[in-house]
């Protein structure tokens, strides 16, 4: 993974460092695929029929103006929209050739396989250890205490948080700083060994330094996980994503390699958005 290729955050969108090395990755197998997905809130249609393939081990970013449906679509991918009473999803989303909206599909197992990290860090009001151990306990992933300790340690290590918290695992997770809390939430998601990690604007509540750390983490995680992230920040998409999808008013306008989207978009709406004409 070539993180040193763009050590300084580029201020202009055109200078996308490291884009070349990333693009080559986006040719793996299809991990997840959406066909004509429509979402309704009551009688209002929020998503107008989206088709998209998500490849294994890629970082796919969703960009677009507020209210364009990118978060709504993201939440369809692990059925988090089920928790909203008035929300209805139509169409087909397939994960490893199996429909995730099939009636006999177990949503509990689906969410273990497709984890999610939210916009605002939401650690449980429990200790750091318990925050990480919660998922593995839930799914019975660790038989003994020692195994659980291992899972907690390796998850925190992968989230780059171990060195900062290893001496205070028994202290409340809510006592960490915002950036640490978000990495704790990422570690919590990793602990159940998902295939795909969804991230809903994971850095929008963080300061630039914490954002840098989380972005670096996303880069490292894409070695072993497929990552789909929503972001408001186009530079962030340029920095971390292999491919970028532009959403507008419930439509998926264009999806292509991040380089192409930012340097040579095919659609006029995409062009207007990334050059700052609206949004």
């Amino acid at each position: 993974m070539n993180t040193s290729a763009h050590p300084n955050i580029p201020s202009s969108m055109v200078s996308v460092g490291g884009g070349e090395s990333r693009k080559s990755k986006a040719t793996g197998n299809v991990k997840m695929s959406a066909k004509d997905v429509k979402v309704f809130y009551g009688n209002t249609q929020a998503i107008n029929g989206i088709d998209i393939d998500i490849y294994e081990n890629e970082v796919l970013a969703f960009i677009g103006p507020s209210g364009c449906g990118k978060s709504t679509f993201l939440r369809c991918l692990n059925r988090m929209n089920d928790t909203i009473d008035i929300c209805r999803v139509e169409g087909k989303i397939v994960l490893d050739d199996q429909d995730i909206y099939a009636p006999d599909r177990d949503v509990v197992l689906l969410r273990a396989q497709v984890g999610i990290v939210f916009q605002k860090p939401n650690p449980f009001p429990k200790s750091i250890y318990e925050n990480i151990a919660y998922g593995p306990r839930l799914h019975g992933l660790a038989k003994r205490k020692a195994e659980l300790d291992d899972v907690v340690e390796s998850s925190l290590r992968r989230a780059g948080l171990w060195e900062e918290v290893k001496d205070r695992l028994d202290q409340p997770g809510t006592g960490l700083s915002g950036g640490q809390q978000q990495r704790l939430c990422i570690a919590r998601t990793i602990a159940v060994s998902p295939d795909i990690i969804l991230m809903d604007e994971p850095c929008s509540a963080l300061d630039p330094i914490a954002t840098g750390k989380v972005e670096q983490l996303i880069d490292e995680l894409s070695e072993s996980y497929t990552i789909v992230m929503v972001t408001h920040n186009m530079q962030q998409a340029a920095r971390v994503a292999d491919r970028t999808a532009f959403f507008h008013m419930g439509d998926l306008v264009e999806v292509d390699s991040t380089d192409t989207i930012f340097t040579n978009p095919q659609n006029q709406r995409t062009h207007d958005y990334i050059t700052g004409r609206f949004g």
Binding site: T83, V107, A112, N122
Partner: peptide
């Protein structure tokens, strides 16, 4: 957000 966190990990 707390509920979402737990549900997102696959809790019933």
């Amino acid at each position: 957000s707390l509920r979402d966190g737990a549900l997102g990990l696959g809790a019933t």
